[in-house]
């Protein structure tokens, strides 16, 4: 029980609060604040459960893509806000920093290694979130507007 609390619940709570901080920066009010923060917590939970690899980031971003599309449809709001904030915990800030720290130390091998990993992370995020979002939109259009009109 303790390990579940320490390894999963606590980090998710932190991700939730960190995303709540970002909603202040992006001027999100009311219910949107809660949804964005929940998205951030969910994003981190899936990333942890899937094993903290690039593929885990892809899966987590894919889940967030669907989540934010659904929430945007429910609240009849642009999807941008939910997606932006919920994906933030995964953005590879650490990768940029470590790459630079190896570069300054002159360790070219590890610098390139970290740089490529950072790019992989960013690509996984972008592709994961966008693919499911596009897929969701296509299915949604098909289900609710079968004649192909918007």
């Amino acid at each position: 029980m303790d390990t579940i609390w320490l390894n999963y619940a606590l980090p998710c709570l932190c991700a939730f609060l960190a995303c709540a901080g970002f909603t202040l920066v992006f001027n999100i009010h009311g219910g949107g604040m809660l949804i964005c923060s929940l998205g951030g917590a969910m994003c981190w939970l899936i990333y942890l459960l899937a094993g903290s690899t690039i593929f885990a980031a892809f899966l987590s971003a894919a889940a967030i893509g669907v989540f934010s599309e659904v929430m945007a449809r429910l609240r009849r709001c642009p999807v941008t806000g939910y997606l932006l904030v919920a994906l933030l915990p995964l953005v590879p800030g650490g990768g940029i920093y470590y790459a630079m720290s190896y570069c300054v130390a002159g360790d070219i091998q590890r610098f390139l290694d970290t740089l490529l990993h950072t790019f992989g992370m960013a690509a996984a995020l972008a592709v994961g979130a966008m693919m499911t979002a596009s897929l969701f939109r296509a299915v949604y259009m098909h289900l609710y507007h079968p004649k192909g009109r918007k």
Binding site: L88, Y97, S134
Partner: peptide, 25 residues
Amino acid sequence: DTVTISVLMVLVPGVALTNAMREIM
């Protein structure tokens, strides 16, 4: 390292990256 990365998280281009992919899609 931990402290620096956490602080840098407020600067990382997450918004620009997400928007870029949305435009391309």
